[in-house]
Amino acid sequence: MNTVVSADGTAIAYSKVGQGPAVILVDGAMCYRAMGPAEPLAKLLADSYTVYTYDRRGRGDSGDTAPYAVEREVEDLDALIKEAGGGVFLYGISSGAVLACDAAARLGGIRKLAVYEPPFVVDGTHAPRPDDYLDKMDAMIAQDRRGDAVTTFMKTVGVPGFVVAIMKLTPNFKKLKGVAHTLPYDFRVLGDTGRGQPLNAARWAGAQLPALVMDGGKSPQYMRNGAKALSQALPGADYRTLPGQTHLLKPEAVAPVLKEFFV
């Protein structure tokens, strides 16, 4: 296992495959190297790039130094960028897309930024997240109600109740509960982007680099609207829809797009 030490002393576990320019993949909520889309995508990119996948803090083999702050996750990426030699391409999905945008706005060493479907609510096409949502999530974790936190999150992102009930009977649900304590981290990364209001473009004004914002042609309209809004908020960003895709993006659908963009 490879590790890099972040600015606050936290060990961040990572893997790398392939050969060529460096690409760092940033996962969304509850995903990490052993569970999620990053590893399959890395294999598809490895013929053209050196691809870094990592466990965001609190997940997998990475540490989790308290107290949490979004700035610490940006520092984790900074350490990885330096480990990769700088001049990296950065790709993030879902809440990882938002973290990747924050990193691009604050850090050097990033050549291009690509993101897929940040889970924003920017208009009336979806109910805004309740003001007390994060407080309730914090309380569930503090009370060790990890299963409740996972099911609450699943319902929030639109997973049907019967699907959630089935998931609770699968071995993967235990893995999800194992990283449930990081759900509040993701909602802190999202910040105030779930209010049903326009984005604050000033948050990413420092991201002066080529960027690509993608969504799926079969994704909910609110997510597509959020992606379009981000493409307008990021300086110099292009917007692209991947036909037939949903928020559960297939690695085979995005790999060729990234290869086309990361040149």
Rank of each mutant, 00 (worst) to 15 (best):
F173E: 06
G206C: 12
W204N: 02
V157T: 10
L209P: 08
H181I: 00
P171M: 06
T193M: 03
A202P: 00
K155W: 03
D186V: 06
G217L: 05
F162W: 11
I141A: 03
R145A: 13
A149P: 04
K168G: 07
R146A: 08
V213R: 04
V179P: 04
T170W: 01
L183I: 15
G147A: 11
T152Q: 13
I141G: 07
D148E: 13
T151E: 13
G161P: 00
F187P: 05
P160I: 06
V159L: 09
A202V: 10
V189G: 11
D144I: 00
T151P: 04
G178D: 10
K174L: 08
V164H: 05
R145E: 14
D144P: 01
K175V: 12
G196P: 01
F153L: 05
T152W: 11
A149K: 11
A165D: 15
F162N: 11
I141P: 14
T151A: 13
D215E: 12
A205C: 10
I166N: 01
T182G: 03
D148F: 09
L176P: 02
Q208L: 11
V179S: 10
V164S: 05
V179K: 08
F153C: 01
D186T: 09
A202S: 15
V179M: 06
K175Q: 12
A180M: 09
R188F: 04
N172V: 14
G191A: 11
L190A: 03
L199H: 02
Q208S: 12
V150W: 14
G196T: 00
K155R: 14
V150F: 15
Q143K: 15
G216F: 05
K177Y: 09
V164I: 15
L209D: 03
V213I: 14
A205F: 14
G196E: 05
M214F: 12
R146V: 07
F153Q: 00
A165P: 03
P184T: 05
F153N: 00
A142C: 07
D148H: 07
K174C: 06
A180P: 02
G147S: 10
F153T: 05
P160Q: 07
V164R: 03
L190T: 12
G206V: 11
T156N: 07
G161R: 12
T193N: 05
I141L: 06
F162H: 13
D144R: 15
T156A: 14
G158H: 10
N200E: 11
G216E: 08
D148N: 07
G217V: 01
R145D: 12
